[in-house]
């Protein structure tokens, strides 16, 4: 019997990270910046990890960055990804200086290189959630 593919895991949305997911839904990649020390940071936190100030703001990023590193998963990280192997997972370093885990899209796995310039694209994962992915910049 052909079983239906397992649903992919979705992020858990909490008060401190909801603006990030509201942003991706609008197809905007937003991160936080501290209004006291001026530094960007990611992942979302109420307090700036540089100076612990809670005087922070959400800022729309350029959506551009580079592949910091990556792997190609030959075995699925969880059963929901069994049909996707081999697939890549990559750490992206945004031009704003922060890093996030994501995936390179619109690119063959064998063409992915460290430090390759990329830009964000969004894909709907559910009616509520859009996930950021990154594609090579031509």
């Amino acid at each position: 019997m052909q079983s239906r593919p397992l649903p992919k895991p979705l992020p858990f949305v909490y008060p401190e990270n909801k603006p990030f997911w509201d942003g991706t839904k609008r197809h905007e990649l937003v991160i936080q910046r501290c209004k006291d020390c001026g530094k960007f940071y990611f992942y979302p936190r109420t307090a700036c990890p540089h100076c612990l100030s809670e005087n922070t703001e959400w800022v729309k990023t350029s959506g551009k960055g580079k592949v910091y590193s990556f792997t190609i998963c030959v075995r699925p990280g969880s059963p929901a990804f069994a049909g996707d192997v081999p697939y890549n997972v990559a750490i992206i370093e945004l031009d704003e200086g922060v890093r996030m885990m994501s995936q390179i899209t619109d690119c063959k796995n064998e063409d992915i290189k460290c430090d390759m310039p990329v830009e964000v694209v969004f894909k709907d994962a559910s009616p509520e959630i859009a996930l950021p992915y990154f594609r090579p910049v031509a």
Binding site: F42, P44, C73, R75, P76, S78, V89
Partner: peptide, 15 residues
């Protein structure tokens, strides 16, 4: 799943 764990890469299949 709060804090950094919410952005662990799980949603991209990181194992």
């Amino acid at each position: 799943e709060r804090g950094g764990a919410a952005f662990s890469g799980r949603v991209y299949g990181l194992g």
